[in-house]
């Protein structure tokens, strides 16, 4: 039951993009088309789930055990960077088309603060291993939901008459703010 609550909390109530405002770079950068947005969401979800699955043992059995918790940033970033490299190789092999569509945003998952934020939250909230994995997966699903909704809105926005001043990134950020407001409606549902 706890696991389901953690999943829903991470994906919807405390959405990483719309409640914590992490990972805005790919959220704005890759949300032009629904297809590439979905793929970006899936790639990020994959990285996030694996990050949670690997950083938890690293934290518990290395950093806590040897009493060196100050190294958490370094250790987590190493793990994330290696995972992103792996995902990049995998996507390049399996789908060159997708590799080209994601472009620079694929290696940039490394510097996606949402992934590091997830690892740090996981430590902060004292999750056990199963909870961590569900938290990581839920966060990834939350990111996918947010970026998918954004891409849908932006595709419709192509036909809208946006004032010149707001065109491009400005209107995207304004819409992100409105989406965040809407998501506040979930606040308090689960702690």
């Amino acid at each position: 039951m706890d696991v389901i609550l953690i999943f829903i909390s991470a994906s919807i109530v405390n959405n990483i993009v719309l409640s914590y405002f992490l990972g805005i770079c790919p959220f704005v950068g890759v949300s032009n088309k629904t297809e590439s947005a979905l793929n970006m969401g899936l790639a990020t979800t994959f990285v996030m789930t694996l990050t949670a699955a690997i950083t938890w043992p690293v934290w518990t059995y290395v950093l806590v055990k040897f009493n060196i918790p100050f190294l958490q940033y370094v250790a987590f970033i190493i793990v994330i960077a290696a995972l992103v490299q792996f995902v990049e190789m995998f996507i390049r092999k399996s789908s060159p088309h997708l590799y080209r569509a994601l472009g620079i945003y694929l290696p940039l998952i490394t510097t996606n603060c949402a992934v590091l934020g997830l690892a740090l939250f996981m430590v902060l909230r004292d999750y056990n291993y199963i909870e961590s994995i569900f938290f990581g997966f839920g966060t990834g699903v939350g990111f996918t939901i947010a970026i998918l909704m954004m891409s849908g809105i932006r595709e419709e926005l192509e036909y809208a008459d946006v004032p010149p001043v707001f065109q491009g990134i400005s209107i995207t950020l304004i819409i992100a703010g409105m989406m965040a407001l809407a998501f506040m409606g979930f606040a308090g549902l689960i702690r």
Binding site: V58, V62, L63, F66, I68, L71, V74, A75, I78, V79, A82, Q85, F86, M89, F90, R92, K93
Partner: peptide, 21 residues
Amino acid sequence: SMGIIGAALSLFLAYADKKFK
């Protein structure tokens, strides 16, 4: 510990690089 983590991940990546060349 950082060295060991780094070495393990780089070995994994080297293997993956061969596999997904």
